[in-house]
Design a protein around this nucleic acid. Sequence first.
DNA 1: ATATTGTTTGACCAATTGGTCAAGAACACG
DNA 2: CGTGTTCTTGACCAATTGGTCAAACAATAT
Lengths: 206, 206
Amino acid sequence: MHNGKSGNLRKTRIQQRNTETILDAALQVFSERGFRGATLDQIADQAGLSKPNLLYYFKGKDAIHAELLAGLLDTWLDPLRNINAEDDPKEQLLNYMRRKLEMSRTLPRESRLFANEILQGAPRMKDGLSGELKTLVDAKAALIRAWSDQGKIAKVDPYHLIFSIWALTQHYADFDVQVRAVLGGADPFPGAEAFLDTLFEKMLAV
Amino acid sequence: MHNGKSGNLRKTRIQQRNTETILDAALQVFSERGFRGATLDQIADQAGLSKPNLLYYFKGKDAIHAELLAGLLDTWLDPLRNINAEDDPKEQLLNYMRRKLEMSRTLPRESRLFANEILQGAPRMKDGLSGELKTLVDAKAALIRAWSDQGKIAKVDPYHLIFSIWALTQHYADFDVQVRAVLGGADPFPGAEAFLDTLFEKMLAV
DNA sequence: ATATTGTTTGACCAATTGGTCAAGAACACG
DNA sequence: CGTGTTCTTGACCAATTGGTCAAACAATAT
C-alpha cells in the first residue's frame, strides 16, 4: 500500500530507513540546485535508489520538497522562541545570534534550502511567513522594544535587529562559496563568531 | 548574419533595442526563477518576442545568462573601488554601506541574480570570485586594517566587516518577501537605513 | 511451505524545453 | 522602385524529465 505523505508513523524498518535516506538526498540536491534545478534522477542517485522506488515512498517531486519545507520553518525559528522576558536581555540576544551562526555552520544545506525558497518568492512558504513567522517575530519584537524602552539595551529598531541577526549569520551558509573565495579557503566561522560577538556587544550596549 | 555574443557594437537600431529588451526580460526571469528555473519561452514572453527571434540575437540560454553575469560582478563591486586612503575612513565605510543598500533598493533583480549564482555554488562565476573579487577585497581590507591600527576606526576584522556590509544590505533585496511578510508589507528601506547608520556608527567608533 | 503483503525495477509515456530551419516580412538604400 | 540584407516566425526535432505500470523479487505470517 502506498502511504505517501501521511505522518511519520512508518510501518516497517525499511520504510523508516528509506524515507530518511530519500529526504537526506533530496535536501542535498534541492539545497544545491534549487527546486527546479533538481531532478528526481539526481535525488535517486544520491540516495542510491531507483527513481520508481523514490516514487513508491513519495507521491512526487513536490511531495518530497514539501516534506522538507514542512519542518524547516519550525527548526529555523526555534532559537527565536527561547527568547523570554525573564532572562538577561543582552545575553539572550547574543545567544540567539550565536545559535543562528552555529546553525549556519552545522546545517548549511537547510539554510540554503530556505534561502532558495525565499529567493524564488517563497511560492511554497508564503503562508508560513505571514502567519507563523510574523506572529512570532511580532511577539519577540515587542519584548525587545520593551527592553529598549526600559534602558536594558540600547535603543534599536527590534525588527531590523532581528533581520540583522538573520542576515549576518545566514550569510556564512548561503554565500559560503563567496566567503571562502575571498578568504582563500579558510574556515570563516571562528573569525565570524569573534566579529559578531563584538558587533552585537557594541550594538546593544546602553 | 548572426552576430551573437560579440561586443556591444550593434549595427542597427533594431539590434540595439532588441538585445536590450531581451537582456532586461532575461534579468527579470533569471532573477526570479534561477538559471534552470527560467525557460526561453518565459524570457521570450516577457520580452514580447518569439523564441526563435531570441535565438537570432543570442546563441542560446547560456549566452544570455553569461552576458548578464559578465557585467554583474563589476557593477556589484564598483562602490567598493571608491574606497581610498585619502578621504575620511568612517565616512567612506558608511558611504559604502549606504550605496550598497541603495543598490539593493534600486537593483533588486541584479542582487537576486547574483545571490542565485552564489547559492548554486557560483558555477559560472568562480573565477571572478577568487580572482577579481578576492584581489579587490584584499586591497581594501589592508586599507581598513591600517585605519584600525592607526586608531582611525575601531579595531575590527576588515574581512568580516566587508562581509557584514554585504550581508546586511543585500538581505533586503534577496529576502525581500520575508522582510515584507514580517513588516506586513511596509517599505523596509527607510527603517533599514536608519538602523544601519546607527549600527555602523557604533561599530566603527573608536 | 505457502499465501500474503511489502519492496524494487526495467520499460514506457507524455509534457516540457532548448534549439533548428526554411521561408516569409520588413527594411535599407542606390 | 527593386534588390540585397536584416528580422521574424510557424513548424519541427531531440533530449530531458516527472511520472506510471506490470511484473519480479523479498519479507513475513500462518
